[in-house]
């Protein structure tokens, strides 16, 4: 077979790519975030939820001594084990964070952070918890318009968030300036 046939060229191309593929230690220290090991959207959102607790002050008395801070998920749970993994071992002011799944907004008793899954009925009724000391978070579009406090948005495959400061004030929550600085937009009027 003459060395210029397409078959020969194909063999050479494949052999070259295969040899390159087998090179050891090509990948550097960013190994974990290479394409197929990128975190999932909800792993990052879970990490945010764990972080939010550090930047929010609840009204005095709403968090009792030594009791854990429940992070609730209302409706269909999009996190799976990612939320429990993100919260386990995290402490805020000495309080451990725990994940709790609830069916609807009637069961929010005790929740301090509430993630509302993207379900129309739930989003519509978020007003029913607006005066409770609960940080409400969702990725539903227009969540802020419905009186929610933090809305995740995806931009170029990155998870960012917007804050409705007026809603947080209604609930008596104090959001630290550091969190406001990182938010893509902050809505100050209801």
């Amino acid at each position: 077979m003459a060395p210029t046939t397409p078959q020969f060229r194909a063999c050479m191309a494949i052999a070259t790519v295969f040899a390159a593929m087998m090179l050891p230690n090509w990948r550097g220290r960013d190994d974990l975030f290479a394409d197929n090991r990128r975190p999932t959207e909800y792993q990052v959102k879970a990490a945010y939820l764990a972080n939010f607790a550090k930047f929010v002050e609840w009204p005095a008395g709403s968090i009792t001594d030594d009791s854990p801070i429940p992070v609730c998920v209302a409706g269909q749970d999009p996190f799976g084990p990612a939320l429990d993994a993100a919260l386990s071992g995290e402490r805020v002011g000495g309080h451990p964070l725990v994940a709790r799944r609830i069916d609807g907004l009637r069961d929010v008793d005790g929740c301090r952070i509430l993630f509302v899954s993207s379900n129309e009925a739930l989003i519509d009724s978020v007003g029913s918890v607006e005066r409770l000391p609960i940080l409400t978070v969702s990725d539903a579009p227009d969540f802020l318009k419905h009186g929610g406090m933090i809305e995740f948005v995806l931009a170029s495959n990155r998870v960012r968030f917007e804050i409705n400061l007026a809603a947080a004030r209604t609930a008596g929550l104090n959001i630290s300036s550091e969190l406001l600085r990182v938010a893509t937009t902050v809505r100050k009027t209801p």
């Binding site: 990128r38 975190p39 909800y42 792993q43 990052v44 990490a47 945010y48 972080n51 993100a86 990182v182």
Partner: peptide, 23 residues
């Protein structure tokens, strides 16, 4: 889990700059 572990060490800003795979 390894990815999850690494995420815990990131700041808010770093989280926001991370590319994610979106289901």
């Amino acid at each position: 889990p390894a990815t999850g572990e690494r995420l815990r060490q990131l700041s808010l800003e770093e989280l926001g700059n991370l590319e994610v795979t979106t289901a």
